[in-house]
């Protein structure tokens, strides 16, 4: 690879530091978003199971 391309006239640290951190926060945003969705679906499923158990136990006692 061309080392000049990465050195960017001695300003490589500033330029790549900008681009890398931007990429990093975008990845963090996507990971957090996936986590949020998964958690929301889990809570929904737990509540649905709980509701099902309650109706079952009501049926067996009545």
């Amino acid at each position: 690879m061309n080392t000049d391309f990465f050195a960017l006239g001695g300003h490589g640290l500033y330029v790549w530091g900008s681009y890398l951190v931007t990429a990093l926060v975008m990845v963090v945003e996507i990971v957090l978003l996936r986590h949020r969705r998964r958690q929301a679906v889990e809570i929904l499923q737990q509540e649905a199971e709980l509701a099902e158990e309650i109706t079952k136990s009501n049926e067996s006692t009545s």
């Binding site: 945003e29 978003l33 949020r36 969705r37 929301a40 679906v41 809570i43 929904l44």
Partner: peptide, 24 residues
């Protein structure tokens, strides 16, 4: 990103609804 996030928020807030369970 905002479309994806609003979907997660809809799941959080509308989880008592019948349509959401069917959509999932």
């Amino acid at each position: 990103m905002s479309l994806l996030r609003v979907r997660a928020i809809i799941i959080e807030r509308e989880r008592q609804t019948e349509w959401l369970v069917e959509a999932l």
